[in-house]
Design a protein around this nucleic acid. Structure first.
Length: 416
DNA sequence: TCTGGGGTCCTAGGACCC
DNA sequence: TCTGGGGTCCTAGGACCC
């Protein structure tokens, strides 16, 4: 049984959808690039080649505007990304039932079979690239290998519109000279740690004794060493087996710093409302509520609280988050730049609720019904059709709409 | 003047129970 | 009464991914 894994990465996915330039490639609002690229030294994608040439690829919006005053900032269009992501996904699904998405624009495909060869993988890669270009106008970079980390590595190696085969015959020459940071799982911090012990390349990493890695970096150390050596047998999840969502949250950098407790409360409500509505949409509720804040001097704090009931109600989220805020003395770090809440320990809202003697479970059910009615009004007449009084206190904060502006719907939604 | 947003997993320490 | 161990849950923080 030959294992043949592909990893397909849609090149400049967001740019392909809109012909826009996304500064910093870090999910910031996107800006039209036009011909500014050459004149201002702004590059379209953070490619390996660009990095190797030392070209600046990270630029925040204000920097980009300063560099290029005629830059036009275009807000992201998530429904469009979802559309393209869905079309690509359908294409992959027509070849194998083992397709595992990784973000909106990447997927692993497993085409292993008794007679499958690496050449079959390369042929399929060519066909996927041809079809993506013809049918969607998008180019793909595809890595082909016998394991997931190498397939991913291969898809990163050559962009755009390319296939890279990392086989048992060539991987030593192709993989081992690469910087250790190229491997999935090795980020900025871990890369620095590895370098501090003279582990510079994937070859260096692959050669590390597992016991040494375990002792030094724990579980993740052993995993990374095995990734580097191509020693990974983790399966590509079958289509339809998307992992269950484990947390739902929203956070926002406010249009102006939150100076007072009233400001905090107002933003907290707006964010909590979005989280609660999304939970209800997904048919979920949870009992662990966390609050994260960032002060104006960019220090982050977070804390959580587990309550004894499951909720998808903004009021519950806000009251718990407020408790945390008070208990932790976050008032002392005002002004705040950013605030977020999230809910974990999730369960389906189809599960029966234990009634209690005080009737609070019953009250919660009623309040849930009221929230659903509000959801329905907003669905029919728009997000602004019905608003909370507190949100009207401040026009700047009221302009925030986390649910519409920031949420990329979970990948599970793509299959509906 | 400004530094994103939504997630996942892992770790280490502590509380609690048996 | 004291001590120890195992298991589970909770919590805060860190690192990583797109």
């Amino acid at each position: 049984m030959a294992r043949v894994i592909l990893h397909s990465d849609a090149n400049s996915f967001y740019a392909s959808c809109e012909l826009v330039y996304r500064p910093a490639l870090r999910g910031l609002p996107m800006a039209v690039c036009g011909s500014t690229e050459e004149r201002h030294g702004i590059v379209l994608t953070a490619t390996r080649e660009a990095k190797a040439r030392g070209v600046r690829t990270a630029m925040v919006n204000w920097e980009a505007r300063r560099t290029c005053p005629e830059l036009i900032i275009v807000p992201p269009d998530y429904p469009l990304y979802i559309y393209f992501s869905k079309r690509l996904r359908e294409m992959y699904d027509s070849y194998t039932d083992r397709v595992e998405p990784f973000g909106l624009d990447e997927c692993w495909l497993d085409i292993s079979g008794p007679t499958t060869t690496m050449n079959d993988g390369v042929r399929l890669a060519a066909e996927l690239r041809r079809r993506a270009k013809e049918e969607l106008g998008i180019t793909l970079s595809v890595g082909v290998s016998w394991n997931k980390p190498y397939a991913k590595l291969g898809s990163d190696m050559k962009k755009p519109d390319a296939t890279v085969l990392l086989s048992r015959d060539n991987y030593r020459q192709a993989v081992f000279p690469c910087p250790a940071e190229d491997m999935i799982g090795v980020g900025y911090r871990t890369g620095a740690k590895l370098r501090s012990r003279a582990i510079h390349t994937l070859g260096d990493l692959a050669a590390c004794p597992p016991e040494y890695m375990q002792k030094w970096l724990g579980k993740i150390g052993v995993i990374l060493q095995r990734y580097a050596a191509g020693d990974d047998t983790s399966p590509v999840m079958p289509s339809g087996m998307e992992t269950v969502v484990k947390s739902v949250g929203n956070s926002i950098t406010a249009p102006k710093d939150m100076l007072t407790l009233e400001d905090v409360h107002c933003v907290m409500f707006i964010v909590a409302e979005s989280v609660a509505a999304r939970l209800r949409e997904m048919g979920m509720r949870g009992r662990c509520i966390s609050l994260g804040v960032r002060s104006a001097d960019m220090h982050c704090f977070s804390a959580q609280n587990t309550v004894d009931f499951n909720t998808a109600q903004a009021e519950d989220i806000v009251s718990t988050a407020t408790e945390i805020f008070t208990k932790k003395g976050y008032a002392n770090i005002l002004p705040l730049r950013s605030l977020g809440v999230s809910v974990t320990s999730l369960e389906s809202d189809k599960r029966p609720v234990q009634m209690d003697l005080l009737g609070s479970a019953l009250r919660r059910e009623k309040s849930n019904a009221a929230s659903r009615a509000v959801d329905d009004i907003r669905r029919r007449f728009g997000a602004r059709a019905i608003e909370r009084g507190i949100a009207l206190l401040d026009a700047d904060y009221n302009a925030i709409n986390p649910k519409e502006d920031h949420v990329i719907h979970p990948l599970g939604f793509l299959r509906s």
